[in-house]
Simulated assay, not measured.
Amino acid sequence: MRSHDHRLIGAAKNIPVNPQTPVFSFSPIVLPFSDRPLDLDLKVTAPSTGDALPIILLSHGQGLSNNLNSLEGYTPLAEFWAAHGFVVIQPTHLSSLSITVDAPPKGNEYYWKDRAQDLVRILDNIDTIEAAVPGLKGRLDKTKVAVAGHSLGSWTANLVLGAKNVDPRDGSVFEKFDKRIKVGVVLAGTGNAGSDLSDNGRIMVPFYSADFSEMKTPALVVCGDQDVSPHLTTRGADWHADCYYLSPGPKDLLWIKGAKHGLGGVSGWDAAETQDESPQLLATVQRMTLAYLRSALYGDKSWDEARGALKQLDELGAVESKE
């Protein structure tokens, strides 16, 4: 983290944030599981001070990079959230390009089922993880847990928030809802399937047919209004907001103006796969998601204040909500 904001964050500086503290990261924490083809590697990023710290599980996307689709990615979010009072835990999922495993079996393409199971594994072993990080023991509030995910990671997050998948090939149902997770942040999420998938999309994710009707856990859905994804869908950027519109409340939807799938660069600094790399867009996502998480888990007025500030900053984005 820096002692000052990036000089190019522009109008996003007007979205208020609480004071930051220095952070540290510790990795790898290695958890073996007999039902997993490879040990689960984790990275923990935490503030250097503070107690009763809420937890964020951060699920990486897939992407085309060699490293960002692993615990090495998403530093712009992990460090920012940690600097403002959260402990962020990042797994390397089996779909990561950074590891070597056998090709996933039919029905588990991209190891999508194991991705959701990884988040459950983390919560099942949270005491072990806490004890493994020097200086962290006794500082977690294990009753305050959030999940965040980007792109394919958003689908991972949606599953533990209460969404389910009905495989169009055989009708098999998969769900992984975890009531220990109190709130979610869904970044550039996946939308409705069926006729809304493009021909290529049906080839890429043949297993995918989302049902958001029971996704009752509160969540903030973040979308770029220029995030057009013809490789997956025949629709426009609105497809990524389906998990907001098709799930019950309470939910909030944040549109980032001018943002594409990278949302300004959430997956990594100056990443080639980020088509919309922008300190201002990234700072907007950082600050608005932080405010939402603080209000959801700390119970303060950060989200109300951030929404109020954003109303005066039309060039950055807009929020809608439903109960």
Rank of each mutant, 00 (worst) to 15 (best):
G149T: 09
T100D: 07
K13V: 15
P28G: 11
V44M: 09
K113T: 13
W239S: 08
L159C: 04
M204F: 04
S247C: 08
R307S: 01
S98R: 01
I129V: 13
K176R: 11
H231S: 11
Y292I: 06
Y245S: 11
G162V: 05
V145F: 03
G73E: 00
Q286D: 06
R180N: 10
F207K: 08
D238E: 13
T274F: 01
D118K: 02
A46E: 10
A241C: 15
A309V: 02
P22V: 12
G299W: 04
H60F: 05
D167I: 05
G162H: 07
S96N: 04
A283K: 01
D127T: 08
I122Q: 07
E214C: 06
A116L: 06
L232Y: 10
S65G: 14
G308Y: 01
C223E: 12
I55K: 03
T100W: 02
V88S: 08
G224T: 06
G265V: 00
F33N: 03
G50H: 09
I256Q: 12
P16C: 05
V23C: 11
V183E: 11
W269L: 10
L140E: 02
K260N: 10
T156V: 08
R180F: 12
P28Q: 11
M288N: 08
I256K: 12
V120C: 05
L119D: 05
S267K: 05
G63A: 11
G265C: 13
Q117K: 07
E277G: 02
G299K: 03
L42E: 03
V160T: 12
D102V: 02
I203W: 00
T143K: 09
K106I: 13
S95A: 15
D199Y: 05
W255R: 06
A188T: 11
D199I: 15
W255M: 05
L313V: 05
L58I: 11
S95Y: 00
F207W: 15
Y208K: 12
D304H: 07
H84N: 13
D170N: 15
N125I: 01
C223D: 14
T21F: 14
L187I: 03
S151A: 10
K113G: 00
S34H: 14
R287T: 14
D102P: 11
L64A: 07
L293S: 02
M215H: 04
W255N: 04
P37N: 09
A103Y: 00
P16L: 14
V228G: 00
Q312M: 10
G138F: 03
K106N: 11
